[in-house]
Amino acid sequence: MAYSDKVVDHYNNPRNVGTLDKSAAEVGTGLVGAPECGDVMRLQIKVNPATQVIEEAKFKTFGCGSAIASSSLATEWIKGRTIDDALKIKNTEIVKELALPPVKIHCSVLAEDAIRAAIGDWRKKNNLDEPAAAEQVK
């Protein structure tokens, strides 16, 4: 499998690797995928409650190089965005940025799912259920 330079760069120098305190109110955690499927992504966000801006994003991923790159890129992109803006990120943009081949598209889908899951977790914690709004962006 030949990887794009960007995938190799994220694999060799992953951005924002780490763990946030998942019990903190301002932290949302998304854990998606399954070990038996060969991909598990954990993406965490720390949100400013006043501005709803994602001030911190961390990830850890078990998966192939493309999965690692997709989640690394996702943390880069959501950092500094508002929750609503972060939800606008589409897996197809990740595919394009990383030049993922068709067999690796599921990695980008998983990254998008991880963003949604983290935001969903943060909303739930803070009683900000806005499923309707979330659906609209989809």
């Binding site: 690797v17 854990l31 070990p35 598990v40 850890k60």
Partner: peptide, 27 residues
């Protein structure tokens, strides 16, 4: 260092008892 699974196992989580989102790959 990048693996959430390794971190969880080190923290004493039993991965086999977790509920995984196997439908996560919906392409």
């Amino acid at each position: 260092e990048l693996s959430p699974l390794y971190e969880m196992v080190k923290d004493g989580v039993d991965l086999s008892r977790m509920e995984w989102d196997k439908a996560g790959t919906r392409d």
